[in-house]
Design a protein around this nucleic acid. Structure first.
Lengths: 152, 152
DNA sequence: CTAGCCTGGTTGCATAGTACAACTCAAGTG
DNA sequence: CACTTGAGTTGTACTATGCAACCAGGCTAG
């Protein structure tokens, strides 16, 4: 495969993936949207953070995050804690229920991925994982982000 | 990297990619959404097909496709041709404008990808492309599709 | 210390993209 | 000819999202 061709293929396949992800939105885990899932995941990883941090991290508008957070709170998956230092801030934390649901969803997704990747040689899995990390880690000149070459 | 860990990483990174693609939707090419873009792309590849084919191919509801097609037609990017054989059918074709716009968008996306992948060794590009193809080509037992672990 | 600015969040409003169901029109079948 | 099936359209509703306006708490310069 020539250099330009490989780039073309990567572009096409990543776009295809993004499109299918978009199209199948909401079908796998009715109880937890992709955005909600990633927000919960981030809260688990970070051990609690502010709505603003989530917005910045995922390039979402703060109003969007505000509403998502509101929904997650109503669903009792997260809770807000006043920051005694700064009363403007609400530090978000997973509730036990949130942790449980997140674990369930993660698990069923993992099962699906395992099935999909079952036939892959270990070495390929490792390289693929590494490439994806490298791809997603890229940070280009201010603002540019071809990762989402996607969705207009 | 251990086997389970590689699978975890792939899952996480693909999900992350899907989420960012979703979030950045509409920012890069205001004139053409991800869905519109892929629909146009499919029309170009296939050299014309029916709305129903698009719906089946992308797992979209026919009403959704109907509206998208309507928008694309209003934008003069595609045209409908009555099938003389079966009057129920409308075969969709790209217009010259559609081909031109599609080419422009494809080109600017390509540029973004090139930039992002510029530092990669050729061998890695080729393997990454191959892995993505293999991943996306997977077709599991009826209905399961972890690719879009995504978007609810 | 007060005025003005900055920051974290919420809310009103508008839009895109979807799905689902009911409907129309055409083609096939008995 | 009546029924059924396939392709598309339209009505309705919902979710996710962004932008702009706004509120309230904190910070900083006079």
């Amino acid at each position: 495969m020539e250099a330009p061709e490989a780039v073309e293929t990567i572009q096409r396949e990543m776009t295809s993936f993004a499109r299918r992800a978009r199209a199948s939105a909401g079908r796998l885990h009715p109880e937890l949207s992709l955005v909600s899932y990633t927000l919960l995941g981030h809260l688990e990883e970070s051990g609690g953070c502010r709505a603003t941090d989530l917005a910045a991290h995922y390039a979402l508008d703060k109003s969007t995050v505000s509403r998502q957070v509101g929904a997650l709170e109503r669903a009792a998956l997260i809770e807000r804690r006043q920051d005694p230092e700064d009363h403007r801030v609400q530090v978000l934390h997973l509730t036990d229920t949130g942790r449980r649901i997140l674990a369930q969803v993660t698990d069923s997704r993992r099962t699906a991925f395992r099935e999909r990747l079952a036939q892959w040689p270990q070495a390929d899995l490792e390289r693929f994982a590494e490439y994806l990390v490298r791809y997603n880690a890229w940070r280009g000149p201010a603002g540019s982000d071809p990762a989402p070459p996607a969705a207009p």
